[in-house]
């Protein structure tokens, strides 16, 4: 690990004022310290944000506000989340291990880096780690890689389960800047597609700090998260699907779907949601949804399995959610 200065400020303002351009904020550190040991990440400062009072979950008008340093385990366990945003509890419980969830934070989970093995290998070319160095994954061994939202420069997968559920729940990220100003950004605007700048993963800029996430009242009471992985527990998703549905008189009146294991960011496809809305559930309808989901997928060698797997998972999730 490269040397760094460690700071433990007591206020968000102090945290923002302390942090220079090469600084990293640390919450749980479960991903950051791992990457610092590998020297994939080499911040010159670590600013510990655990004393900023960002560890609360508060009901607010129109939804719930989750602090940046709320631990994944506490978020999954919150009675309000379990009851009304159960897809989020399910996604969190499907991720990592209990020990990691006890440290990992809400903001850190959103900002976690890809598990592409070439990103983690500092001897391999990687446009995300060293802009312009090339991509060893394209033409390399592929399994935990993206098939949607990719570019010729990067096919790294966004690994989060939590963010997939949040995408389906229309989450907004609350961001504070050094001047004390705050902005709220929908998750879809928060993440960036890799394009030719895969090293820039979000619209967060130096001098900004995530202070929390806002979840609106969910658009549906039928919530399902299903994750398929190489082993039964403690593994990243090969494919996952979060569904938030509402049914009336045997018809789907609202559908919000997000996908993990497929995209360079937590994926959502509004064409599928439009296709489902107003329809009665049927196998034919769900098959059509699967076609729409994967029609633009780039199935590189080694990733062909993701098409049928994603379509079957989507069908299973829709079947369960509409029963």
């Amino acid at each position: 690990m490269r040397p760094f200065d460690y700071h433990r400020p007591e206020t968000s303002n102090d945290a923002l004022n302390l942090a220079d351009e090469e600084a990293a904020f640390i919450g749980g550190g479960t991903n950051l310290l791992d990457l610092m040991k590998l020297e994939v990440m080499t911040p010159d400062q670590l600013v510990d944000i655990n004393r900023l009072g960002l560890d609360q979950i508060d009901e607010v008008s129109g939804g719930i506000r989750i602090g940046a340093t709320v631990r994944n385990s506490d978020l999954a366990d919150d009675a309000r989340i379990r009851r009304n945003w159960s897809v989020l509890s399910r996604a969190l419980l499907a991720g990592a291990s209990p020990q990691l969830r006890n440290r990992a934070t809400t903001a850190g989970n959103l900002l976690q880096r890809t598990r592409c093995p070439y990103f983690q290998d500092i001897d391999a070319p990687c446009n995300k780690r060293v802009p312009g160095s090339g991509c060893a994954a394209i033409g390399g061994e592929l399994r935990n890689h993206a098939v949607l939202g990719t570019s010729d420069h990067c096919i790294a997968l966004h690994p989060s389960d939590m963010a997939v559920a949040m995408r389906a729940l229309d989450a907004e990220v609350i961001v504070r800047d050094a001047g004390g100003g705050t902005r709220t950004t929908a998750l879809v605007e928060f993440y960036r597609l890799p394009g030719d700048t895969p090293h820039i993963e979000t619209t967060l800029t130096p001098g900004e700090l995530i202070t929390g996430v806002h979840l609106p009242v969910p658009a549906g009471d039928r919530q399902v998260y299903r994750k398929v992985r190489d082993r039964a527990s403690y593994a990243f998703a090969l494919v996952s699907t979060a569904a938030v549905l509402r049914m009336e008189n045997g018809k789907i009146v609202s559908a919000s779907l997000a996908f993990g294991g497929l995209g360079t960011m937590p994926w959502r496809n509004e064409e599928i949601e439009a296709l489902l809305t107003g329809e009665a559930p049927s196998n034919a309808l769900f098959d059509k949804a699967g076609e729409v989901l994967m029609k633009e997928a780039e199935l590189r060698e080694g990733l062909e399995f993701k098409k049928p797997l994603a379509q079957r998972v989507l069908k299973a999730v829709l079947t369960e959610a509409t029963q």
Binding site: I26, G29, L33, Q99
Partner: peptide, 13 residues
């Protein structure tokens, strides 16, 4: 009271 991975956290925290 919480189980954690001691390898992925800094002592100073």
């Amino acid at each position: 009271g919480r189980r954690i991975n001691a390898c992925l956290t800094l002592a100073v925290m």
